[in-house]
Design a binder for these strands. Structure first.
Lengths: 208, 208
DNA sequence: AGATTGAACGATTTGTTGATTATTCAGAAA
DNA sequence: TTTCTGAATAATCAACAAATCGTTCAATCT
């Protein structure tokens, strides 16, 4: 069992090198096998197929990212709004940089989310769990107020969809995206918050 | 001049029939020209190219849609939240149905937004103008409160991006999309509204 | 037995060719 | 002159062949 894990790791390692150097499409199973000093057929004792190797790489990488997000979500000394801010901005910056400067990463992201729609969904769910925890604590502290935390987390994700795969939706630069995310977050926060802000002025507008 | 407009209309009409019947890619300029009893070369006196004919068709169609949106934005007897609701839902339903049941429309939408990114941007801007008007009036009536209407309109669009090209982002059914849009709108509204709702309970949560 | 191989298979990709098509423009019609 | 034509051009597409590659599995090794 320890044996198998080591071999799997070896395969993942070899594939990681090939994928990041030549791209997913341009590396063959034969090459990966040869790097591991085994026959192509033998790879299939450890992974059902090529895509599953890519998925293993993505999962490994994503898990680290998730841990980081979890830390951001529970930072002491910051209020809920700041932590939500950190969370969403980290997400935006990570994907932006990853896809921007690394065409290989972009290729793999595209292939995986195309052929394995469940995977993208799984990522969303994981992040939602973190969001729910954040919202839950925020509600306990009276910082936010909402009916259904699970649902609200879904809605926050829906509203920030544009910033999750930034370059799929638009060709905006990172600063512009950050400015937009800041604005959207502000709208959402003020909505969540049971009104720390005391703007009580009733309609005093000058109608034309 | 009146002459030219008529010829342009004739071309647009012929192309509209061909495009909606056989698709954009499958209709040739020669066919459109022949339908108009003219030579292919002559089309280029009226349109710079094939794509521009498609754009003219899209523009015509979209203008009607815009008018409809404008009406929804100023419906008397409805408050700002309801009108915003109507606006965003109309947008969602229109694009959903259009792209869902009409593969020709989908093809044209894809081609145009691919080759003419400016066009999609122009549509967004037009809708934003309507949004700004809605927000402006809502603020005058004290229904909403915001710093910068133009910016807020942009943020509303950013937050509802997912519902603007629904089938590009997800495979959700219309009911699910509607439920989500409802939720996102709610978050945004409560954020916009200077608190008609009187939830004044200060942190009464039971901290563990 | 279980682990591994590598030739064989079918699917996918690549390369190439020929035909179609958008676009142009020199000239014909008006 | 202005308006239009339609053959010429260059770009794109479709179809087919060859090669490559992911995957399988009967045979081999340990």
């Amino acid at each position: 069992m320890a044996e198998k894990d080591t071999v799997k790791d070896q395969i993942v390692d070899a594939a990681k090198k090939r994928f990041s150097h030549f791209g997913y499409a341009k590396t063959t199973m034969a090459e990966v096998a040869s790097d591991c000093a085994m026959s192509p057929g033998n790879l299939y004792r450890f992974f059902p197929g090529k895509l599953d190797i890519a998925e293993a790489i993505a999962t490994e990488d994503y898990s680290k990212h998730l841990e980081h997000l979890r830390k951001l979500a529970v930072q002491p000394g910051k209020d809920a709004a700041q932590r939500l801010h950190d969370l969403l901005f980290e997400e935006l910056r990570r994907t932006y940089h990853k896809l921007e400067k690394d065409p290989r990463a972009y290729e793999m992201a595209r292939v995986i989310s195309q052929e394995r729609p469940k995977f993208a969904n799984w990522m969303l769910e994981n992040e939602r769990k973190i969001l729910v925890e954040l919202l839950d604590e925020a509600e306990r502290r009276g910082e936010f107020k909402m009916d259904d935390k699970e649902f609200t987390a879904e809605m926050v994700q829906a509203a920030t969809m544009k910033f999750r795969y930034p370059q799929l939706w638009s060709k905006l630069t990172l600063p512009k995206l950050e400015r937009e995310l800041e604005g959207v977050m502000n709208l959402l926060i003020v909505g969540l918050c049971p009104h720390m802000t005391e703007l009580r002025r009733s309609a005093h507008g000058e109608a034309a």
